[in-house]
Design a protein around this nucleic acid. Structure first.
Lengths: 204, 204
DNA sequence: GTCTATAAGGTGATAGAC
DNA sequence: GTCTATCACCTTATAGAC
């Protein structure tokens, strides 16, 4: 890697451009020409590096998925009590999604359009949340939080983190009547609000 | 309407077919031929009834949107105390989404792909949640629930109702390791679980 | 590795017969 | 209202020069 900070390699340019266009437009809506333009290269080069549109898309989907399911366990393994872990988890995940707000809908949408093939990819990238589930169960067993299916608690936390960000157009235009400032306000202390909401919901 | 229960009119067939295909594939992925096949008619008829693919899509998008934002206020205006209203709201909304599980992602995805035009449509169908917001504020003022931005409470409830249903492929394959039975179990008492979670979160 | 040119097939839309 | 035939354009993909 001699070209450090000089210019991106052609392949990197392709990856970045493909990611941008596919996530914005979806597989069906994306055009190879648009990806080539975005990358500043010739359309044929896309086929030279990746044989087909499908192959290019698959690469992007996998990348997007890995970003969407980052190391959730790591953030949960913060030192401290359960409350600290929950707060760390929520903080990390809201930060993650705010950086990639379009990825969750992209993934869910493509999973709807082509369930069979993509579900295989999802399964392939096996994510293990066992430690998190066990920590939750341990809290329940020791009567430090109320009984709840551990998986349900995780789903609830993810829902509260992800939904307001991916549903921004609807929250802002429908619920907040287009008031951008109010949306900003709502999201500015979202981490604290979600943490408070969740912790109150599970306290004994 | 003489043909009651005999056969759907051509227009109805088109509407049903277009809804199915557009929601499944999106605007870009849908094919006029597929819609025609699904409706059991000729492709030209689509253009006879709706001038273009865009017009047909716009009609479907509006219909989908109205179904997604049903009369939320009505379910909130159940008789009884605040808890009863919240429970009615959650019950109605989960029932709604379970009938149309693909619509939320469809709407969010198309809003991402074409924000400008579709946001106008969203604004056009003006939904007024003022009564709900005021009821929540009233509960806060009377110190029957803890202080929270009313819009935030609504977003949280919607998140908990919608997310597990639209994210089914991921919840089932990633979190539950493909265990369909566990997903069914989780969703079977979802209404009660969400109600308990929310009510505990806002209790004083 | 990168480009130009072009093939091969699909897609929305319309004309016109019935 | 409904069909067949067809146009005009777009899109992926490849061949081949440099």
């Amino acid at each position: 890697m001699v070209n450090t900070m000089v210019e991106k390699s052609t392949e990197d340019k392709i990856v970045d451009a493909a990611e941008k266009v596919f996530i914005e437009k979806g597989l069906a809506g994306a055009r190879m020409q648009e990806i080539a333009d975005e990358a500043g290269i010739n359309k044929s080069l896309l086929h030279y590096y990746y044989r087909s549109k499908e192959k290019l898309f698959e690469m992007v989907f996998k990348m997007a998925f890995k970003r969407f399911v980052p190391n959730l366990i790591k953030s949960f393994e913060q030192p401290g009590d359960f409350e600290a872990k929950v707060r760390a988890f929520i903080g990390t995940y809201i930060d993650t999604i705010e950086k990639i707000p379009h990825i969750p809908v992209f993934i869910l949408s493509e999973l709807t359009n082509n369930p069979r093939r993509l579900v295989e990819i999802v399964k392939g990238l096996n994510v293990d949340l066992t430690p998190v589930l066990q920590t939750i169960q341990n809290e329940i067993d020791n009567k430090r939080i109320r009984p709840i299916l551990p998986e349900t608690l995780i789903v609830n936390v993810l829902a509260l983190c992800i939904f307001p960000i991916v549903a921004k157009p609807m929250v802002q235009n429908l619920l907040l009547k287009g008031d951008q400032e109010k949306y900003r306000l709502m999201m500015s202390n979202r981490k604290e609000e979600v943490a408070r909401f969740v912790l109150a919901a599970i306290q004994i």
